[in-house]
């Protein structure tokens, strides 16, 4: 049973629809105490880091997520839900969950690219069960102005490039996170969700 975290950061319809399409059992919850029912967690999110962290602290979900991640069960952060797993975000200078080491920074405005990055980009992954069986040159859908800078290279799972090279996916132990939206990335995205469900 997958718990999908609702903390009023963007719309959860597309994640729910994709999980339903994949025939997976899941529930959507804003309540920290319900995480005990989940054997996996998906932590989505679109929007702004300060507001998101505020919502998580108010409900006590911040502590519950840290506890869940520390418990060793599979955890998947998506987009903003990936960024705020790190220690700190440059987006209005906010302390984040600190589940993964590193920080979140903005794309430089002088690199001659539109910001936010909106659209499809390829990702080079290292081998991992989350990304097993993907077609060569698969593309994924990104919508973001900030990206993660892990403190240690060894947690980088996928790299991409948008004006500059950036980290598009990370993994440490049971915690995976993608900057792109697997639920909006066509069949390769669904394959990642299917892999996560099967972990």
């Amino acid at each position: 049973m997958i718990g999908v975290i609702d903390y009023d950061a963007g719309n959860l319809t597309s994640v729910s629809t994709a999980l339903r399409y994949l025939g997976c059992d899941f529930f959507v919850t804003p309540r920290p105490e319900e995480l005990s029912r989940a054997d996996k967690v998906i932590f989505p999110g679109v929007g702004e880091a300060v507001q998101a962290m505020g919502n998580l602290r108010k409900s006590g979900m911040d502590g519950a997520l840290k506890e869940f991640a520390a418990g060793g069960k599979p955890f998947l952060g998506i987009c903003l839900g990936s960024q705020i797993l790190f220690d700190h975000s440059e987006e209005r200078d906010v302390a984040c969950l600190g589940i993964l080491p590193g920080r979140v920074v903005r794309f430089p405005s002088d690199m001659g690219m539109k910001i936010p990055q909106i659209g499809w980009n390829t990702v080079d992954f290292r081998e991992d069960p989350l990304v097993a069986g993907l077609p060569d040159e698969a593309s994924f859908y990104f919508v973001h102005s900030y990206y993660v800078q892990p403190a240690t290279e060894d947690i980088v799972l996928g790299r991409s490039e948008y004006g500059i090279p950036f980290t598009a996916a990370v993994r440490r132990d049971n915690v995976w996170a993608t900057q792109f939206h697997p639920e909006k990335s066509g069949k390769p995205g669904l394959a990642i969700l299917r892999n996560f469900i099967g972990l």
Partner: peptide
Amino acid sequence: VAERIFIP
């Protein structure tokens, strides 16, 4: 549509 396609 949302149930059938998984792109934006």
